[in-house]
Design a protein around this nucleic acid. Structure first.
Lengths: 238, 238
DNA sequence: CGAGGACTGCTGGAGCCCCAACTTTGCAGT
DNA sequence: ACTGCAAAGTTGGGGCTCCAGCAGTCCTCG
């Protein structure tokens, strides 16, 4: 008898089922907290927790003042991948603990944004970006190659710098925290803001292209959501 | 003035800082909800939300009836990686939407557990496991190779089967949900249950070794935590 | 002395409420 | 016909409380 497990799970599972079987197609609204409490006869706490869980899974997205909606590409929400900037330091520590020799280096150069990067980073096409090449090696063998593009002054080469970058972002009027989540972008990338199905006020900070110990690059963008969280958007051109 | 951002963040940031700078070494207890409300002069809701956020980040772990504790390897908590079983289906859909031809196949064979797998899956050394080889191809080129070991009867070859597997798990008295999280395992793997710093009652379901479009394998274990969530544990032998 | 039970503290689930900030809608007035 | 504004609905932050189940600890009783 599955009667004694958390009630919020009943709500989560029912909504998830509806999303999966198509009863709730992408873009359609999820009942509000108040409606859920009535519909499922649960308290507000359970309704809200259910919405938070589904949002955490990337199946739905909440828009303040409007409601929760089914994500365009729910299926790819939990995809994560190791990236130079986020994980090189801990990964290196891990390798070193195994007696491996870990090295990495990079060199940066200025470059013009151009149409594609301009759109993704939301800067002017003629804006100058910092283009950085990274090489990450274990026992001399390259494990990861990455090329990153960032607005001038925002380049960060490791996790610590990335943290101090947060401070710099504050100075530029962008408020961020450090919780990390991920979303899949549509690869052909239609056009405007809600392509990535993100709330208003989003800032893209960083676009990175990584070769991870192989021959297939992964493209990554960092998206800073003011006052909310840190997101990574992935696309994998094959 | 950072006075107006959420109070729970103040708690989160302070504890995170203490963990990062070593004031709270691995294993040490985090103040309880009641203590946090007093210490930071916040409500219980904020205290609890802070603990949930930190637990979600993998920095701390909550043990029912005992308390929250600093994780052994906090740094690697947010590592995720694409795996055959979790993401092949959506990834395939993505590739197909780009006009790519996607194929995969596998073949299974029985095998004896042996000491290492027996410990990880918590079965007898002489137990028979299902060993499965997967090949995942995009336009004929192999993108991912994986070898998975599972207790007999639990093999799943795609996301849908994996869901029905949940049902089968129920039949075996294991209660699980589908939220996914990840933890890094210690690679040398000392010995017993709390190696992975997981609560009691944990079941390991699946051990997988993946070559992801490259030459470096990733080892993955699925850990089923009854009534709680689904975890993946990673180690990356280089 | 040793085993078992009571007690305390903790987590996680759940309910209810209030509020600020934001979106949407629809109406009133020009 | 159009503009602007107010009202209603919704999210996210926060507060308070209660309870079940679990883990220690301590104390009592055999």
């Amino acid at each position: 008898m599955a009667t004694s497990d958390p009630v919020y799970l009943r709500v989560v599972e029912d909504i998830r089922r509806q999303i999966n079987d198509g009863s709730l197609p992408p873009g359609s609204p999820i009942p509000s907290r108040a409606q859920l409490t009535r519909k499922y006869q649960v308290g507000e706490t359970a309704a809200r927790h259910a919405l938070r869980v589904l949002a955490g899974e990337g199946l739905i997205i909440g828009r303040v003042g409007s409601g929760h909606y089914v994500r365009e590409r729910p299926d790819l929400a939990p995809l994560h991948r190791w990236r130079f900037l986020d994980h090189s330091t801990p990964f290196a520590a891990d390798l070193q603990s195994q007696g491996r020799r870990v090295t990495w280096d990079w060199h940066s150069e200025p470059t013009e944004a151009g149409p594609d990067l301009a759109r993704r980073l939301r800067v002017d096409q003629s804006a100058t970006l910092t283009k950085t090449h990274y090489v990450f090696r274990g026992d001399g063998r390259p494990l990861q190659l990455a090329t990153a593009y960032e607005p001038l002054g925002f380049a960060a080469h490791n996790v610590e710098e990335r943290r101090s970058l947060v401070t710099r972002m504050y100075a530029h009027g962008v408020k961020i925290t450090e919780v990390v989540e991920s979303v899949q972008s549509r690869v052909p990338d239609p056009s405007e803001s809600d392509v990535l199905d993100l709330p208003a006020g989003v800032h893209v900070l960083h676009v990175e292209r990584t070769h991870w110990a192989g021959d297939r690059p992964v493209e990554t963008s960092d998206i800073i959501i003011p006052g909310d969280r840190f997101r990574m958007v992935y696309s994998m051109p094959v």
